[in-house]
């Protein structure tokens, strides 16, 4: 077990290193003026430019720049933003934005997983029934909808026509709250739109995967043994089938974190939710490269860490992997 974890840990670090390298060079291969990475597209006087180039080490050979970059990274210096003049990238990312994105992402993935797993199990059990056909088609439909369009529809229906949810932002601007609960209520009210959008967009995928996994398990011999023992259907399904079928899901969840960042970007943009996803979009539009680089690194770390945790979880859950 320990060897397994060490191996996985080293592999994770290796991938992280590669990610850092990629991050650095990705922004250096841009055509045109190399100072764009640091100074942006804003017009600056040539003398100022020269000073900045020297300050940021852009006149040094590339590998020196890389070392400088890594050095900065290790102390948490992610550079300075263009659009938010003077604010460090780290401050922008590790503030409200990260919190908002995690709350939104975390809750929607949790709910989507839960519903997907349970409904997937039931649908697999009642294969070919109306329930199964309905849920499969529902999943395929929501899976086929572009996330941003789903968001737009929800805004249209619930925001415009039914006027029941706010269509932008995390909180109502200018409102004062008398206590934490009022604040939370307003916050959650604003979160409803993006939450429903994200959850719906993920649920189909989890459902289909779980259903496939359970159907796979049904072909195993131990399912026949369980039935031969005269166990109730519910026991067979949830005790024997589900346990085995959820194992592959664990690895899947780690990979899903990756998609969460993407889905969140779309949703946050459509709903103007003040999170990391929206930040990506804003930074791209404003060509704020330091911010983009910073987000890249942060996302890489989060995803690699999530994968590593999933490896641990899998090793703990599957008794066959104890060595």
């Amino acid at each position: 077990m320990r060897d397994y974890l060490v191996k996985r840990g080293l592999s994770a670090l290796g991938t992280l290193a590669l990610a850092v390298v990629l991050n650095f060079f990705l922004f250096r291969i841009m055509p045109g003026d190399p100072t764009r990475t640091v100074v942006g597209d804003f017009r600056v006087a040539p003398e100022v430019r020269k000073v900045l180039i020297h300050q940021f080490g852009l006149d040094q050979p590339i590998w020196v720049q890389f070392l400088l970059y890594v050095q900065n990274l290790l102390v948490g210096n992610l550079g300075v933003s263009f659009q938010y003049r003077g604010t460090s990238v780290a401050a922008i990312i590790f503030g409200r934005r990260l919190f908002n994105t995690f709350i939104l992402m975390g809750s929607s993935i949790a709910v989507a997983l839960l519903i997907g797993i349970v409904i997937g199990t039931i649908a697999a059990w009642k294969r070919e029934s109306k329930f199964d056909v309905f849920t499969v088609i529902f999943s395929l439909v929501t899976y086929s909808m572009p996330v941003f369009w789903l968001g737009m529809l929800i805004i249209l229906v619930f925001g415009y026509y039914l006027n029941s949810i706010p269509i932008a932002g995390t909180i109502t601007v200018g409102l004062t709250y008398s206590n934490v609960f009022e604040y939370a209520a307003d916050y959650l009210h604003h979160m409803t739109g993006p939450f429903v959008t994200l959850t719906l967009s993920f649920i189909g995928y989890y459902f289909l995967i779980m259903r496939d996994s359970i159907l796979d398990v049904f072909t195993e011999d131990y399912m026949l043994t369980a039935k031969a023992k005269g166990l109730s259907n519910r026991k067979i399904l949830f005790r024997h089938a589900m346990r085995n079928a959820t194992l592959p899901m664990v690895s899947l969840i780690a990979v899903e974190v990756t998609y969460l960042f993407g889905g969140a970007t779309m949703t946050e943009t459509v709903f103007s939710w003040y999170g990391i996803g929206r930040l990506v979009y804003e930074a791209v539009v404003m060509a704020d490269y330091p911010v983009l680089q910073g987000i890249f690194v942060v996302m890489a770390v989060v995803v690699i860490a999530a994968n590593f945790l999933a490896d641990i979880a899998y090793a703990l859950l599957d008794p066959r992997i104890r060595y």
Partner: peptide, 25 residues
């Protein structure tokens, strides 16, 4: 009704017990 009878009155030993036992229990 069979569930009550299975294993109590009549049981079965399968071949190739490789996968006949649930590997995670």
């Amino acid at each position: 009704e069979m569930n009550a009878i299975r294993w109590k009155k009549i049981s079965i030993v399968f071949q190739g017990a490789m996968n006949a036992l649930n590997p995670v229990i």
